[in-house]
Nucleic acid binder design. Structure first.
Length: 673
DNA sequence: GGGTTGCAAACAGAG
DNA sequence: TTTGCAACCC
């Protein structure tokens, strides 16, 4: 039988730790881990044990008697939070999994739901994901007849980006247009009008977009001191990972979450800031000490991940930045192999080379999970994906299209959304336009009626409007009424919707067999949830990668190869890293080449990619690019143009009789056999 | 008027 | 692969 002992929580003198922190960490890591009260900023270069530091701090706080529920760990993705807490569980015990963790958006959403009633918004508000938001903007754009005059008016995606920029940078719309979209200055009035209509829409439809989650939470905590106090008392210790990618709004939230005690630890690396498009500014991290007085600054500088030669290349890259960083990564690891620069005749050859290298390494006993292929844009891996399929190499892709963004999944989600929130006009619109003969106009009329109806699911009294669609509307109405009023479990509801939707799916898509399979996966996935709100919330805030779904259905014993956009690879590492399509116009992106700041950001992106590699780094590019118009010659990335053979060793692909092999130019180490 | 269909053009990055 | 626009059908 366990006995209780009385102990003051703050008194850590008598704590006997089950982990020997001092031995398992280096000095600055230990300093960070044993930091207790007040603000701290940990500047942690790539591979310096940043995650390890966070994990051990969580463990140590818990060992000191802090309740896990009083620790908040904010990370960039929920995947990162899960992995971190799992690792913390391994060094300590399952108490770690009770720590609050997730993204700013996720945590804010929880707070807003919790205090919805106090704030006077409906607690069944749903989240307007970016594709829904863009659709709403499109509707308003046509409604306001904004694009009339033949002059180029911003497209819906662009308008969405403007609004999002304004929210995240805390600037007025006109300032954003002025500085970032000068070509649309003349349309500012129309854009403002759309912005207003968009906010009105969100209010009326009981939805919040991603930015609202942050803005509304900020406003709530600013205006209601009692809520703010309650929240900050609960979060006795807050840790923020990847702080270099937070924006001013998130920084303010961080302050509010720790209001009154400032027990906040931010961890990050200004050289790895790659989210400027979301309002992050790489200089923000240096502002932290100004925001929080008496900040203790701790620097982690020793790299444990990569060989010295990989770091040499990384350091060399950073030297090219317009804004300098006082940073040079070093390691006590061995020299290692020189990073390779592979010039392939065309993209197809690049893919063949990569997949062949991967197979060779696998034959030598390396596991696929130790390798990764990185690229700038989601589409840069399409060619390679075909080749991997041909060679039957299992892979999982991060970044690019998400499960919840695929058209067929969105169709099903729309049905679920109208069940949770009947005011959600855009989802009604989606549900209705599926029906034969109903287009935007008819749908708009029906939606106007439905969103103000007493009992929208019954759709009675609507026949007058509906005439020739009556039969289809009846079966829709029957489905929704049943689902609303009968007692179904969440996965049963999803199953019914999927059954109803199946025939539409078959009519709509040529590749319906694959999509129907996805839908079945979705039904299975729904079993993990107890209520619909939660599925919708989780799918928009923590989107599953599309290929993760494919992968589950072809379960093999082998962990798959990772393909990832550089953005999605942040914080991760692999023994063997391939960086493909390293071309001028791709990395750096063609969007960035006129602007020195964006160019610096692209350079940091390249830096992030290279520092993911522990043992070997292969950078490749095709000489001949193909697109729909034909073939053209392309140039390697300007970032590697000036780097000499002593830091980046050029390889050429030589065609052999049966298969190809890469050969170093002279007598440098040959490819693994 | 409103819906459907077909062709030309553009396509980031993520919560 | 999706989106914008214009011609074409009910």
């Amino acid at each position: 039988m366990k006995k209780f002992i009385l102990k003051k929580e703050e008194d850590t003198r008598g704590v006997s730790y089950s982990i020997d922190y001092e031995k398992e960490l280096n000095d600055p890591q230990f300093e960070a881990v044993s930091h207790k009260e007040g603000p701290a900023l940990v500047i942690a270069g790539a591979g310096t044990g940043k995650t390890r530091t966070l994990i051990y701090r969580v463990a140590r706080l818990i060992e000191q008697g802090v309740a896990p529920g009083n620790i908040l760990l904010l990370t960039f993705t929920r995947r990162a939070a899960r992995e971190m807490l799992e690792r913390a569980g391994r060094v300590l015990d399952q108490r770690c999994s009770k720590v609050n963790g997730g993204t700013f958006h996720y945590y804010c959403s929880r707070l807003l739901h919790r205090y919805a009633e106090r704030m006077g918004f409906p607690e069944n508000f749903t989240i307007l994901d970016s594709s829904d938001a863009i659709e709403v903007i499109q509707l308003l754009r046509t409604e306001l007849n904004a694009a009339e005059s033949g002059k180029r008016f911003p497209r819906k995606n662009t308008i969405y980006n403007m609004l999002s920029s304004a929210a995240n940078k805390q600037l007025g719309l006109h300032e954003i247009v002025d500085s970032q979209y000068p070509q649309f200055r003349e349309h500012i009035d129309k854009i403002e009008q759309i912005a207003q209509a968009y906010s009105a829409y969100k209010k009326k439809s009981h939805v919040m977009d991603f930015d609202d989650l942050l803005v509304q939470t900020r406003d709530m905590l600013r205006q209601h001191k009692d809520i703010c106090q309650q929240v900050s008392a609960e979060n006795r210790y807050v840790m923020i990972d990847e702080y270099q990618d937070t924006n001013a709004l998130q920084a303010e939230l961080a302050g509010l979450f720790t209001w009154g005690h400032n027990n906040i630890m931010a961890v990050g690396d200004d050289a790895q800031s790659i989210y400027a498009f979301r309002g992050a500014d790489h200089k923000n991290i240096m502002e932290f000490p100004n925001l929080f007085r008496n900040t203790r600054i701790i620097k982690l500088e020793e790299n444990y991940r990569s060989t010295q030669r990989i770091l040499d290349l990384a350091n060399r890259l950073l030297e090219q930045a317009k804004d300098k960083y006082d940073k040079r990564l070093f390691t006590n690891r061995e020299e290692g192999d020189l990073p390779a620069l592979i010039k392939a005749p065309d993209e197809r050859d690049q893919s063949r080379f990569i997949s062949q290298m991967i197979l060779t390494m696998r034959e030598q006993g390396k596991e696929l999970r130790e390798m990764a292929v990185l690229f700038r844009n989601g589409r840069d891996s399409f060619e390679l994906e075909l080749e991997l399929n041909r060679k039957k190499i299992p892979f999982i892709k991060y970044g690019g299209v998400k499960f919840a963004e695929a058209a067929h999944i969105k169709d099903v989600l729309a049905h679920l959304k109208v069940l949770v929130n009947p005011a959600d006009a855009i989802s009604w619109n989606r549900v209705l336009t599926l029906l034969e003969g109903i287009g935007p106009k008819t749908a708009a009329d029906l939606v106007a009626w439905l969103t103000s109806a007493q009992n929208p699911y019954a759709m009675d009294g609507m026949q007058r409007v509906s005439g020739k669609y009556k039969k289809q509307l009846d079966s829709l109405s029957m489905l929704l009424t049943d689902l609303k009023h009968k007692d179904f479990t969440t996965s049963e509801i999803v199953e019914h919707v999927v059954n109803y939707y199946r025939s539409f799916c078959e009519k709509r898509f040529d590749d319906h067999p694959k999509r129907v399979k996805d839908l079945e996966t979705f039904v299975g996935l729904a079993q993990n949830f107890t209520d619909l709100d939660q599925i919708l919330n989780d799918l928009s805030l923590d989107p599953i990668e599309q290929s993760a779904v494919d992968f589950e259905s072809t379960v093999e014993d082998e962990a798959p190869l990772v393909l990832s956009t550089i953005h999605s690879a942040k914080g991760l590492e692999w023994s063997q890293v391939f960086l493909i399509q390293c071309l001028d116009g791709i990395l750096p992106s063609g969007y960035s080449i006129d602007d020195a700041d964006s160019l610096d950001e692209e350079l940091r992106l390249m830096y992030v990619a290279c520092t993911r590699a522990a043992d070997n780094l292969y950078i490749s590019y095709p000489v001949l690019q193909n697109n729909t118009y034909g073939e053209y010659f392309s140039n390697p990335s300007r970032f590697i143009a000036d780097i000499g053979e002593k830091e980046l060793e050029p390889w050429v692909l030589v065609e052999e009789r049966d298969d190809q092999q890469a050969l170093p130019p002279n007598d440098a180490p040959a490819l693994p056999e």
